[in-house]
């Protein structure tokens, strides 16, 4: 049977390890999402407004990345880059891989949202003398963001889940910490379940944040 006392004893002993694991998971996910979203915005812009060659190149990039398992990206980021003289720590390599993965998804989301904005919006912005960067920041992005948000929250949650894969290159995130604790305490059921609950709370937090931003940015008079 589940021995709750033993579990809490072990948890108390390992409390700092667990906290560090959660912190690492959150840090990895947050950095990957931030970098990935920036990169993804560039990808989305290139896919929507780029010339033919630019579009082709970025299309190849997103399709290639999206067709590759995240685990392969992570292993490539760590092992392949080191063979060409780029030595990243597991933490850095992991974030790079996740950010690249994130960018391909965010790029697609942004392309979809930008293409859904009527052409007249750009023309109206041009007609009052805005340059393209100004048009993007003040007219297109604010409208696209509202459409992007729900899907973007999904992607963010995916990134949190994908961060577990960094355990294979030795990043001490929540899953690896949990496994270490289990190898010492043999309370596998309890600690895996506990880790699951922690992941749930991280993602639940992201979802709440998304809902809050969505409420804040609702445009009056629009369905």
């Amino acid at each position: 049977m589940i021995d709750l006392n033993a579990f809490f004893d072990e948890l108390w002993i390992a409390r700092w390890a667990v906290l560090q694991g959660v912190a690492t998971t959150v840090a990895i996910s947050a950095l990957a999402i931030v970098f990935g979203s920036f990169l993804g915005t560039v990808v989305g812009l290139a896919l929507t407004y780029g010339g033919r060659l630019t579009r082709l190149l970025f299309r190849a990039y997103t399709d290639f990345i999206r067709g590759t398992p995240v685990l392969v990206l992570i292993l490539a980021g760590y092992y392949v880059l080191s063979t060409i003289g780029i030595n990243l720590t597991p933490f850095q390599a992991g974030i790079l891989a996740l950010a690249v993965f994130c960018s391909s998804h965010v790029g697609e989301i942004i392309r979809g949202a930008l293409q859904a904005i009527p052409k007249g919006q750009r023309e109206a912005a041009m007609a009052i003398g805005l340059t393209f960067p100004q048009t993007f920041v003040w007219v297109l992005l604010p409208q696209a963001l509202r459409q992007i948000l729900p899907t973007w929250v999904n992607t963010a949650a995916e990134m949190v889940k994908a961060s577990t894969l960094l355990s294979v290159i030795g990043v001490a995130e929540l899953l690896l910490r949990t496994q270490e604790i289990i190898s010492r305490s043999f309370l596998s059921l309890e600690f895996y379940f506990f880790a699951g609950v922690l992941y749930f709370f991280v993602n639940f937090g992201i979802e709440l944040l998304g809902k809050w931003v969505e409420r804040k940015t609702t445009i009056p008079g629009q369905g």
Binding site: P118, A127, I128, L130, W138
Partner: peptide, 30 residues
């Protein structure tokens, strides 16, 4: 482009800005 003003068939107002915000955008940015 800002030397000429244009009004469109489909209005093309910026839906995320108020009426005043729509008028202000060009004044502030351009």
């Amino acid at each position: 482009r800002a030397l000429t003003g244009m009004a469109f068939q489909q209005f093309n107002l910026f839906p995320h800005l108020t009426a005043a915000g729509n008028v202000m955008l060009g004044l502030i940015k351009t």
